[in-house]
């Protein structure tokens, strides 16, 4: 087993464990930290899969943005309610059953896809610059729409949290 594989397996393991950690812990704050670990290890996996640009975005936007926003939300809500960060579980059995069913089904059929196609090839181009060009040519419409989406999400969030005059 090459060192490359060892690193990959390592990150996969970290991602899985921290994902399960979110499920296992009953503290919202700890769950958010687990999410952060998971997202960061996924970014590492993306680098190993030669998707550097996505990996960077993952770190900057997801880990740096989403998780921070979530932690911020947690703090605000605890301040609003004045209650501890504990989370209760419900529907434990059906939830786990559904998850297991999904996992086994996906693993079974998706792994068939992995074996039926050739092994991953490697590319040696300058991926980041190519991504940039693609974004401004073939993907310019979704790109612009994504901009609109961000704008509306911002306005939506502002409208939602703004307190009413009444």
């Amino acid at each position: 087993m090459s060192s490359y594989s060892i690193i990959l397996y390592g990150f996969i393991l970290i991602a899985l464990i921290s994902a399960i950690g979110i499920l296992a812990v009953n503290n919202v704050f700890k769950a958010a930290l687990f999410l952060l670990t998971c997202l960061l290890s996924l970014a590492a996996i993306y680098v190993l899969c030669l998707a550097e640009f996505v990996a960077v975005t993952q770190i900057l936007v997801y880990a740096g943005g989403v998780v921070v926003v979530i932690i911020f939300g947690i703090m605000l809500t605890t301040k609003l309610t004045g209650k501890p960060l504990e989370v209760k579980n419900g529907n434990l059995f059906p939830g786990l059953l559904a998850a297991l069913a999904f996992a086994s089904m996906l693993v079974k059929y998706q792994s068939m896809m992995a074996t039926s196609t050739a092994e991953l090839s490697t590319m040696s181009e300058n991926l980041v610059s190519k991504t940039g060009v693609e974004l401004m040519t073939n993907y310019v419409l979704p790109f612009e729409l994504a901009g609109l989406l961000l704008l509306m999400a911002l306005i939506g969030a502002a409208v939602t949290t703004r307190s009413t005059p009444e």
């Binding site: 899985l16 939830g95 559904a98 998850a99 999904f102 996906l106 998706q110 792994s111």
Partner: peptide, 25 residues
């Protein structure tokens, strides 16, 4: 050279865990 299989398993498990969290928490 990377193997696809463990990554597939990873994504399947991540999805299932996410679903479990959505249902349980």
């Amino acid at each position: 050279m990377i193997e696809a299989l463990p990554l597939h398993i990873l994504s399947a498990f991540l999805f299932a865990t996410g679903l479990a969290i959505v249902i349980i928490k």
